[in-house]
Design a protein around this nucleic acid. Structure first.
Lengths: 347, 347
DNA sequence: TTGAAAGCGCTACCAG
DNA sequence: CTGGTAGCGCTTTCAA
């Protein structure tokens, strides 16, 4: 590889100072047209590739990139449909603001901390369920704007969450309206430690993930209002994977054959629930009604199509990116609304 | 915000030279344990946040990130299931090599060029169909390793493509084996210019996108061998969107009601074809057989489940990332194989 | 408008 | 093992 041509070389060859040459590239208005064109011409002749990115970064202190981190599970970003929608929204806003998008990737938490420390970015976006986390501390140590999605983090520059309580309440109320009386709740992971399977009262009381806590609260509120005792509800903690929830549901229906309403905290879980219920010989929605949460596109093509609580994940991502990149203008705590999406699995 | 603490401040306060302080962070083995611990202690007291990323980059010349570009359509990355699988593979390899992943984002080609010039990365990965492209020129101007996926680019450090010809041949042969005789080919976009709708012979001769050219060749080879004249095949160029291909197929079946085999160049297109055929009153696979290309997960849940040519997009992405980040070891032109995936839409 | 020169903060080298 | 120091390539004052 030939030796790199530097701005100074161009300046000398063009007979101008380095400062003027710099302006020819970065602030064309400040250089007389004639001079500017000569500089660009000389640059081309010398094979100058334009200002060195890292040098400019160091000088200006701007990275021109937004860091995106998924601390709970770093490969999750490209596996979960909801995370992908989020990324689509983030990408859209980044494009609008002419900023690149840095996905922080790592195989384990320790490596993630290094990855964060090595990332040349101007701000961070974090999607996670938990808030006590070495990864998050590492981000905060960088002392750059940090916006978190779906959880509250102390000291964050902004927060974008859903009105999860209201959404869950809506879901449960809908199943009640459809005539369900014996409920199972399929929960997302509730704590840092993986502990899948039936949840007893103690575990339900120790939920640390905000999303799970809120949605559980919403479900319970609606069911209680309908005269259903919390103790009569079956609670199961699932991995956010259809194949896993399908198994869980098969087992569950063996132990609790009278269940006629399933409240799933994600559509991915709900889709597995449809499979599990069908495999257990149930007709949906006649024998069991199922409602998910998120409103992902895949829910249109399940058998039967999945009812859900719709959220706008794309907009959630876009908004978060806007907050992270923005000049912290005004309201930094956004709560987005959800809506009921009725499809075949509940009617 | 408080004034930034620099490494020199730490060094002074700890009574060591800047070089030693640097080593305490970056090359701990070179510093006596006792000294190192004092340095780290002092750093903590002073609130030093660790080496400045951009400064280190400038000094070492390493960015610790891989740039990923989708020149054909910059929002495409998070919309197309195949692109997402690709990203998952790229992300996996980046994680393995402890490198972050920079998604180049932009709203238009001009802005994309700026985005590329502003990206602090060590190598580029490009997924595209066309090879003549201002965006690609901009990447090449950076003079960094460039690996391209699904197309050949002159001067690339590496290339990962599919054996598209063989895959397409397999698809067409399968439909023939299933008894189809009157074919329609639903093509991906064939050229830079969008020109959706029926393709005449002239347009078929002017296909610039490698993937389309190869797959078309494969389809034709198998059909010709079965005694079917190319002129009797209906060719339609589709946008890679199910809703679009569904419309196209409805129209097509009105004009060519006897079609009994559909060869789609992507599963996304094929899924729309299923919808369109069903809307036109056809039974699948009895009246029409449909086979896609890619083998995406969504194909399992369509009605009926979609037959396809399976490719391993995750591995494709991973391999490309490995080549881009690697020391250019050995074979830089990989051709991946495909396999036939028979499901309900062809039996 | 243009030129000269001062760093941005760090790592790598070389000498001890 | 440690210290001193050059310089990565650029942008941005400040003066002319």
């Amino acid at each position: 590889m030939a030796e790199r041509v530097r701005l100074l070389d161009v300046a000398k060859a063009a007979g101008v100072s380095q400062g003027t040459a710099s302006n020819a590239f970065g602030k064309p208005d400040l250089v007389r047209k004639e001079v500017r064109e000569r500089i660009l011409e000389v640059a081309r002749e010398l094979g100058y590739r334009g200002p060195h990115v890292m040098a400019r970064m160091l000088r200006t202190g701007k990275a021109g990139a937004l860091g995106v981190v998924f601390p709970d599970n770093l490969e999750y970003a490209f596996s979960d449909p909801v995370a992908i929608e989020l990324l689509r929204g983030v990408g859209r806003e980044c494009a609008r603001q002419a900023v690149n998008m840095m996905i922080i990737s790592a195989e384990n938490p320790e490596q993630a901390i290094t990855a964060i420390n090595n990332a040349a970015v101007d701000a961070f976006l974090v999607h996670c369920y938990s808030d006590d986390n070495d990864i998050i501390s590492a981000i905060q140590r960088r002392n750059q704007p940090l916006v978190c999605i779906d959880t509250d983090i102390a000291g964050a520059a902004g927060t974008v969450v859903l009105d999860d309580f209201a959404g869950a309440e809506m879901a449960a109320q809908h199943l009640i309206d459809c005539g369900a009386r014996r409920f199972a709740i399929l929960s997302l992971q509730a704590n840092k430690a993986e502990n899948f399977g039936p949840m007893n009262a103690k575990r339900r009381g120790a939920v640390s993930h905000r999303v799970v806590r809120e949605r559980l609260g919403g479900y319970h509120a609606a069911l209680k209002k309908a005269g259903i005792a919390i103790e009569d509800i079956v609670h199961i903690e699932c991995e956010n994977m259809s194949s896993h929830s399908a198994e869980m549901v098969e087992t569950m229906l063996r132990d609790h054959p009278k269940i006629d309403g399933i409240l799933a905290m994600s559509d991915v879980i709900a889709i597995g629930a449809l499979d599990g219920a069908r495999a257990s010989g149930r007709k949906i929605p006649d024998d069991i009604k199922v409602i998910g949460f998120d409103g992902i596109a895949e829910g249109e093509r399940t058998d039967p199509p999945l009812s859900s609580i719709r959220q706008d994940s794309v907009e959630k991502g876009r908004l978060a990116a806007e907050m992270a990149l923005g000049e912290t203008q005004g309201d930094n705590n956004r709560v987005l609304e959800t809506s009921l999406l009725v499809r075949g699995s509940t009617r």
